[in-house]
Nucleic acid binder design. Structure first.
Length: 399
RNA sequence: GCGUCGGUGGUAGAGUGGUCAAUUACAACAGACUGUAAAUCUGUCGCCUUAGGGCUACGAAGGUUCGAAUCCUUCCCGACGCA
């Protein structure tokens, strides 16, 4: 993998670049659609490619459980298995440590509302007895499969081995994504663990990467604490990673400062991936603060649930007012949905639970988000990032 | 015409003397969703309300009872059986 910066955004951390991999280039900043189980839900790879995706992100834990990384290796690797011949990134399973662990059965996710104070009270957090499918052990994490209840112990070494079997172009170190509700003591302990796992991930990767065709990114954690975040960035910077992920579950208002603290420290010449973030306002924030890659399930999940992006904010296509609306979801949108179908038709597909609804809505949402990042990229090249940002957010956030 | 069974909120379908404005499902209406346990989840869903409650309701009309969707009578409607 090779990363080249083409232009920088003045007086801040933003930049435009190109990542070159064995399976092609990624023009950064870029949005990476999520295809957890080797499939961008509801879309064929051709559809994903046609709407502008240059790279996708799949998941180590889910593919390890089903169909198994060895089967994927036998099939000739992920690219061949799923017929996606462009770059692929795999996440390490670190997010599942969180989503199936501390967050299991709770309202917490990538973004936690800071107003929900009960989530920020440390005393509350002795819930070790609460049911969860992931438990952190000495050496790694014990997962109980949500598919059949079987137990699987994933170590950093194991995660890297699985990812090499899958054969993505960019892979991630195994980490522990923490909840913002954890107290400082726990965040410190978890960060030490993540750092230890980062080193072990790197060592295992170096053993396996004989052909030198796979890039490994380390993941910065540290919760909402400035010293921990900076400590993490400095530590990871000292190791020989090809790039970095910025992880964690955030209170929305903490995200910008956390990203900035980290990116001011991380080496400029290596790409940075803000993990799991992708709402329009977050994309502007991240890019302005030096993020090169974003992945997020929001466009595809929202699409399947009838929530569609427009330049005037999100709309719920199931709302009664769209039943007789024969306009496109978004006027002048060049996506396949808007070029050919009306709001009324899409609303009908959703009300009728037609499977095509998910496909058409996903095409639109992914096109919208991918294209938004492409426009932001172009605005930096054209020296009008801030004007574009202001104009876009004025319309998008007004409602 | 006789007999049997049945008529419950937008629909299907529970309930069969008080805890029933009525289980549940679907539909409807709205909201949420950020490294995918997610084609998922949450809320509302007779009318009015100063949110305490008030009012009208289980085919219709009478009746029994302190009290009826629930019991009785007649009528109307439907399905099936016999003529």
């Amino acid at each position: 993998m090779h990363f080249k910066i083409e232009k920088k955004l003045e007086n801040c951390l933003g930049r435009v670049g190109v990542i070159t991999t064995a399976h092609g280039v990624i023009q950064t900043p870029a949005f990476v659609p999520v295809g957890t189980k080797a499939s961008v839900k509801a879309l064929t790879p051709e559809q994903a490619r046609d709407l502008g995706a240059e790279v996708i992100l799949a998941n180590t834990y889910h593919l390890y459980l089903q169909p198994g990384d060895e089967l994927v290796a036998k099939a000739g690797g992920l690219h061949k298995f799923m017929n996606w011949n462009s770059p692929i990134i795999t996440d390490s399973g670190g997010f599942q440590v969180f989503s199936l662990g501390a967050a299991y059965g709770k309202q917490v996710s990538k973004i936690t509302k800071i107003t929900d104070s009960s989530l920020l009270i440390p005393e509350r957090f002795d819930d070790s007895g609460a049911p969860r499918l992931a438990k952190i052990g000495q050496d790694g994490v014990s997962f109980k499969s949500h598919l059949d209840g079987s137990i699987h112990y994933i170590t950093p070494e194991k995660s890297i081995q699985i990812q090499h079997n899958l054969g993505a172009d960019i892979i991630f170190a195994f980490d522990e994504c923490t909840s913002p509700a954890e107290d400082f003591r726990y965040q410190t302990e978890a960060l030490e663990r993540t750092h230890n796992w980062a080193k072990r991930s790197l060592e295992e990767h170096d053993k396996l990467n004989k052909k030198n065709n796979i890039a490994l990114f380390g993941i910065v954690q540290g919760g909402r604490d400035e010293t921990l975040r900076k400590k993490s960035a400095n530590f990871l910077k000292s190791l020989d990673f090809d790039g970095f992920g910025i992880g964690g579950s955030f209170a929305k208002e903490d995200m910008q400062t956390a990203v900035r603290w980290v990116n001011e420290i991380l080496p400029e010449e290596k790409p940075r991936h803000l993990l799991g973030i992708g709402e329009p306002e977050d994309l502007f924030m991240g890019i302005e603060n030096g993020v090169d890659l974003f992945d997020c399930v929001a466009p595809t999940r929202n699409a399947r649930n009838g929530s569609l992006y427009t330049k005037n904010g999100k709309i719920n296509i199931m709302n009664a007012k769209y039943k007789n609306d024969f306009n496109a979801v978004e006027e002048n949108c060049k996506c396949y949905l808007c070029a050919n179908y009306s709001r009324a038709y899409l609303a009908h597909l959703f009300h009728g639970k037609e499977i095509l609804a998910a496909t058409l809505a996903s095409i639109h949402n992914l096109y919208f988000i991918i294209n938004l990042v492409k426009k932001i990229r172009q605005s930096i090249l054209d020296d009008n990032f801030f004007e574009f940002k202001k104009e876009f957010l004025k319309g998008y956030l007004k409602s």
